[in-house]
Design a protein around this nucleic acid. Structure first.
Lengths: 127, 127
DNA sequence: TTGACATTACGAAATCCTTCGTAGTAACCT
DNA sequence: AGGTTACTACGAAGGATTTCGTAATGTCAA
């Protein structure tokens, strides 16, 4: 499979674990997730199997306990999700997106500064 | 119904129309959407009925052709969607969200300027 | 009034998502 | 070898989503 697909909510949760931990077994993913919420072992297994067939993860079957790894780097997937929502919800307006993202919460001075820095950098690369 | 729920992808599409047009009949919504993609009349009707029971829209049954209206203003719903994704995908980091949203496309000078203006304004209101 | 037409109500199929139970299989220990 | 444990594979239930067809009902003109 070379075609990445859009992950569902549950799949995204698993991808988060794989991005954080790197290649992991079902047991490891399950332990990480079930620390936060109850979820059956075979549920995680099944999800990883589905994700394998969708091309969202790759599976190393060398060892008895298969090792799963996210197919796409976190950056790429997150970018796709952000772009998709930008289009679907905000008609492609980044300003609107940021306005709403900021409105719902309290951003620290540091974060605002970071956002400014990102804008500078973006503009510099643009030309 | 006073509890708003999270709209699905199709429901969001309909909300877009209602936000743009204001209160509309099934026929009007259907015409607007089917200008872009084929979709049966009763499909739109059914969706609006479901959305009514979910509390996403309100229905005025005065006239024979019922008139539907978005329950929540666009701003509020968009804010919720943005906040939800911010949390789920970007662990609450607005910078990360914007970074990825910008990365996938070309933003005009005007848009960058607008983003800076928003940051200024946000900071001003904060203190 | 009756036929044509617009509209709503309802049911249901097809697909996807999420979750888990059961069965099979391999490995390991005594 | 036999029993226990750790895995994977598979099927399937239950719910949500999306889509549409058909039936029922109201409206209006001839």
């Amino acid at each position: 499979m070379t075609n990445p697909q859009k992950p569902t909510v549950s799949e995204l949760e698993i991808l988060h674990v794989l991005w954080e931990r790197g290649p992991s077994t079902v047991r490891e993913v399950h332990e990480t997730i079930s620390a936060k919420k109850p979820l059956g072992y075979t549920t995680v297994l099944k999800l990883l199997q589905i994700m394998t067939s969708k091309g969202l993860v790759k599976r190393d079957e060398q060892e008895r306990a298969h090792v799963y790894e996210a197919w796409q780097p976190a950056e790429k997937t997150k970018r796709q999700i952000a772009a998709d929502m930008l289009q679907r919800v905000f008609d492609g307006s980044a300003s609107e997106l940021m306005l709403h993202a900021l409105a719902e919460r309290r951003s620290s001075k540091q974060e605002i500064a970071e956002l400014r820095r990102l804008l500078d950098e973006y503009e510099r690369k643009q030309r």
